[in-house]
Amino acid sequence: MPAALLIPTSGNSGSTLHGMPCGAIGVRGNTLRKGYARFFPNYGGNMQTLEIRAAQYEELPEVARMYRYSRDRCLSFIPRLHTPEEDLWFFQNIVFKENELTIVMGDEQITGMMATKDDWVEQLYLDPRHLRKGVGTKLLNQAKAHSSGNLKLMCFVENVDARAFYEVHGFKEVKRTSGSENEEGAPDILYEWKA
């Protein structure tokens, strides 16, 4: 995994490329700037730089808070089974130890996270205040780039926005479950992407 990626974004200016929020990716210390004016009319104005990098152990309390905030706002159809303390334990003892945990930093806070293991996206959550800004796309593209050319994930059937997001990014539905295979008991879908 690269040490960090910096993604300059245009904030809420509404700049898009092919209908999706856009931003160039550069390696830390060498952010790409060529051609920004073409995609960002406000370039030089209110630009925000997002950093995508590996999470550090001491950041896990903030990761767990963002995860809970996202689930509460975006997945209100599933039961809340765990306390914030249990969420933190989960990230400290399971997610961080068994996965590659990537975070997105913006405005000096964690705005997104993704946990991957082998060719699975185990977790992908964004702060709902930062949706539709291209951050999820950057995380998913990073997972694709580090995969063997095959990537899988599970998505709740009722999470219509996430399903549309994954399908736009080339994921195909493989099978549906009744929810008996997840602790929430909510029907879900196995998605797969192939290069």
Rank of each mutant, 00 (worst) to 15 (best):
V121M: 03
G112P: 00
S13H: 14
P8R: 12
D72W: 00
L101F: 06
V95N: 07
G44R: 03
R71C: 12
K34R: 11
I7Y: 14
F156L: 04
I7E: 03
Q109K: 15
Q56G: 06
G19D: 06
N141D: 15
E58G: 08
L50Q: 01
N99I: 03
V121N: 00
L50M: 12
K172Y: 05
G29W: 07
K133E: 11
N93L: 02
K133S: 09
L6T: 14
P128Q: 09
Y36S: 08
I25E: 05
T137N: 04
P21R: 06
L60V: 03
D188S: 10
T83R: 06
E85A: 15
L140S: 01
Q142R: 15
A64R: 02
L75T: 00
R28N: 08
Y43F: 13
V168P: 00
I7L: 15
E59M: 10
V104E: 02
V168R: 14
F77H: 14
N182G: 02
P61G: 03
G26M: 04
L153V: 04
G136H: 01
L81F: 06
V27S: 11
V157K: 08
F96A: 01
K133T: 04
E58K: 12
K133W: 00
M20P: 02
E158M: 13
E184V: 00
K194I: 09
T31A: 10
R73T: 00
N150W: 05
S180Q: 13
P187L: 12
A3P: 06
C74A: 11
D119F: 09
S148K: 15
G170L: 08
E183L: 08
I103H: 03
I189P: 04
Y166S: 03
F77V: 06
T31N: 07
G29Y: 09
A115D: 09
I78S: 08
F90H: 15
N141W: 02
G11L: 05
V168T: 11
E108V: 05
R163L: 08
E85I: 02
A64D: 12
A164L: 09
E51K: 14
N182M: 05
I94W: 11
N46C: 07
D127E: 07
E181Y: 03
E184D: 04
I94R: 12
T31H: 07
S76Q: 04
V135L: 15
N12E: 14
R80A: 14
P21W: 04
G19L: 10
S148E: 15
A54S: 15
Y166L: 04
S147K: 07
L126A: 11
N150E: 15
L139Q: 07
L126D: 04
W89I: 05
R28S: 13
A24R: 11
Y57H: 13
E86T: 01
E86S: 06
D107H: 11
S147C: 11
R132V: 03
